[in-house]
């Protein structure tokens, strides 16, 4: 079966959505040339300058523009080049995009998609590496998805472009080149961005998302050599959260480790831990453990950069702690 990369899957999803629906348009800095990772390459040539808009360095204005265009019936996809710059668009997202449906007594809808990419990759530095999803999931009215593999990335973008309200698609720069066997993707309107089982196991459940899925799988393989069987779940949808399959897993394994790249403090792991324990407290044989980024600005130097986010070794170590 043919393979595709995560970046190609996203490009295909945008292409298919644009071909199907004239209301879909892209805007962002240098999107006409593909952006820094080439994700939107070729779309300007195919769909024209009226639907692939290169913008000035004006994140707040282009996000607000997209909100206005969405109110007028378009489906804009705004690219925020690095998730770190979502700070600049956040007022428009949190105070306008996320609220207008309710504030208007549901006269209005804001079907807006924001694509952005997060994460540590080759020393991009403290202002080009952060994972800021916790800020977004704190805003009612914003949906957030964080695909970890190419096929999910395709589906997540297609799904986002059919939602009635704003959705942030959090990509990971370290995943763009990752290949996966391409599934025959007949678009299924029933599909929802819920938890994906990456690896079945008996002894403990690891709940994760985005690029940490790979790290968790590497840890699971290493632990298998010691006879420890780990089940790995990739959440995919961060808001709203659907934890049903994960709860079922924890009821079997009785032990949970939550892993994310974002800093632990105030991170999504806290929300997950709280929800899990309220549902499966009686099934747990150990406290729920969280592993995430150290609470520091991400240092530039390669050995330090690697050390501030969970490694496969650290995940394996944490699983052993949960099992102890």
């Amino acid at each position: 079966m043919a393979e595709w990369t995560y970046a190609e899957a996203i490009r295909q999803a945008l292409t298919d959505a644009m071909a199907e629906d004239d209301a879909v348009l892209l805007l962002g800095e240098d999107v006409a040339l593909g952006g820094p990772f080439g994700v939107t390459r070729g779309l300007r040539e195919r769909f024209g300058a009226g639907r692939v808009l290169n913008t000035p360095i004006s994140e707040a204005a282009i996000t607000g523009f997209a909100v206005g265009a969405a109110l007028a019936g378009r489906r804009p996809v705004v690219e925020i080049m690095f998730m770190d710059f979502i700070t600049l668009a956040l007022d428009m997202l949190a105070n306008q995009a996320a609220k207008l449906a309710l504030l208007s007594g549901f006269q209005q809808a804001v079907p807006l998609v924001v694509r952005t990419q997060a994460g540590i990759y080759h020393s991009a530095g403290a202002q080009h590496s952060q994972s800021l999803e916790a800020w977004l999931v704190h805003v009612p009215g914003l949906a957030v998805v964080a695909p970890g593999v190419a096929n999910d990335a395709y589906r997540a973008v297609r799904w986002a472009l059919r939602q009635p309200g704003p959705v942030v698609v959090m990509e990971h720069k370290g995943l763009y080149g990752r290949r996966q066997a391409r599934e025959a993707l007949e678009w299924d309107p029933q599909w929802r961005p819920g938890p994906q089982l990456r690896r079945p196991g008996r002894d403990a459940t690891v709940v994760t998302y985005s690029a940490m899925g790979e790290t968790a799988l590497a840890a699971a393989s290493a632990l298998e050599r010691d006879g420890i069987s780990v089940e790995v779940w990739d959440l995919l949808g961060l808001s709203p959260l659907n934890l049903e399959p994960v709860l079922e897993s924890v009821r079997r394994t009785h032990r949970v480790l939550i892993v994310h790249e974002a800093v632990v403090t105030g991170g999504l792991g806290a929300e997950l831990a709280a929800r899990l324990q309220s549902e499966v407290f009686d099934d747990l044989d150990a406290p729920i453990f969280r592993l995430g980024g150290r609470p520091v600005a991400i240092p530039f130097s390669p050995p330090l950069e690697r050390a501030v986010i969970p490694s496969a070794e650290a995940v394996a170590e944490a699983v052993r702690t949960v099992l102890a």
Partner: peptide, 16 residues
């Protein structure tokens, strides 16, 4: 290069 002798001890890099 991200080295300890850097002006920012390797924590900032070219952009910082």
């Amino acid at each position: 290069l991200g080295r300890a002798e850097g002006v920012c001890r390797g924590l900032g890099g070219s952009m910082h």
